[in-house]
Amino acid sequence: MSIVNLLNNIDVDNSFFKQKKDTVLLMLKKAKEGGKWDAVTKMDKIAADKRVPKVDEKADPQASLMSMMKHMYDDGDDEMKRSIKKAWHESQSKKGPGMGMEGFGNLDDL
């Protein structure tokens, strides 16, 4: 088995595998002790970095929060979308009429 583009180096001599009936367990020893891997391969790291929203320190905090919520909504599954819609609806209900949910879909879908 070959894993291409590992994020960091491994110690091949101290790495091993265990084979079971329906599973193979790979135990890879880090070449550098104490290091933390955010991902196994470079492609996994790139994909994970794309999911993390960028925060602009100079931007308005409320605008940044809204941008992050929109990002979570756009990339989220159905359960995440329902949760965001429900929380948004409840917070807007407390504020009173006139505060819409533009960009967050229809409340009837809750």
Rank of each mutant, 00 (worst) to 15 (best):
G98Q: 00
A48D: 12
D44K: 05
A48P: 01
A87V: 10
I84H: 05
K54Y: 14
M66Q: 09
K70M: 08
D74F: 02
T41Y: 03
V12R: 10
Q62C: 09
K81N: 07
A63P: 00
G103F: 07
W37D: 13
S67G: 11
A87M: 13
V40Q: 04
N8Y: 14
D77Q: 09
F17K: 08
I3V: 15
M66A: 14
D75K: 14
D77A: 08
S91M: 11
K58F: 13
D38Q: 12
M1P: 07
D60L: 04
F16L: 07
M72E: 10
A39F: 04
G98P: 02
G35E: 15
K86M: 11
I84G: 05
K85E: 05
Q19G: 03
N14L: 12
A31F: 07
T41I: 06
V40R: 06
M1D: 10
A87T: 12
M101I: 10
A48Y: 05
K58G: 02
D38H: 10
K94R: 13
D22H: 11
A63Q: 15
G34I: 05
D109M: 09
N5H: 10
V40T: 09
M68Y: 07
A39H: 04
P61M: 04
S2E: 14
K29M: 12
K94F: 11
M99A: 13
E90G: 00
N5S: 15
E57V: 13
K86E: 10
I84S: 03
P53V: 04
Y73C: 01
R51H: 02
A59M: 07
L107C: 02
S83Q: 14
V55Q: 07
D77Y: 08
A48F: 12
H89V: 00
V24K: 08
K29P: 02
G103M: 05
L65R: 12
E90L: 10
L110P: 00
D74W: 10
A59Y: 03
K42F: 03
G76N: 01
D38Y: 06
D11M: 09
D108T: 14
D38V: 01
A39Y: 01
M101T: 09
K32R: 12
A87C: 06
L6S: 02
D11R: 09
K36L: 11
K20Y: 13
L7P: 00
L28H: 03
H89R: 12
L7N: 08
F104T: 03
M72T: 00
T23E: 14
G34R: 06
V4T: 11
K42D: 13
E102S: 15
M80N: 05
L6G: 02
F104C: 05
D77F: 09
M68E: 08
M101N: 05
K85V: 01
T23F: 07
G103Q: 06
G103P: 03
Y73T: 07
